[in-house]
């Protein structure tokens, strides 16, 4: 799947979820935000994050040497 198709897929899924959760009218108001978030999801999904890379949370970052 090319990047634009993948981004459109994410946007469609977000739009469907927004309609279900907030109603069609509110989902329509969120159109631009949905497009932004779909773009971020694409960037995160396609970046080659290391297989060993665990999520960082509270105990990060460690002090510099």
């Amino acid at each position: 799947m090319d990047r634009e198709a993948q981004r459109a897929d994410y946007a469609a899924a977000l739009r469907a979820a927004a309609e279900q959760r907030f109603g069609a009218a509110r989902a329509a108001e969120l159109t631009q935000t949905i497009e932004d978030v779909a773009g971020w999801m694409l960037e995160v999904a396609t970046f080659p994050v290391g297989a060993e890379e665990a999520p960082a949370f509270y105990a990060e970052p460690e002090p510099s040497a």
Binding site: R21, L30, T33, V49, P55
Partner: peptide, 22 residues
């Protein structure tokens, strides 16, 4: 509202990117 819709696996992957970036 958008935060409510972001799938959990994307959130975790973003946190992994955070660590990799640092």
């Amino acid at each position: 509202e958008m935060g409510m819709l972001i799938p959990g696996d994307f959130y975790v992957r973003a946190l992994r990117i955070r660590r990799q970036f640092r």
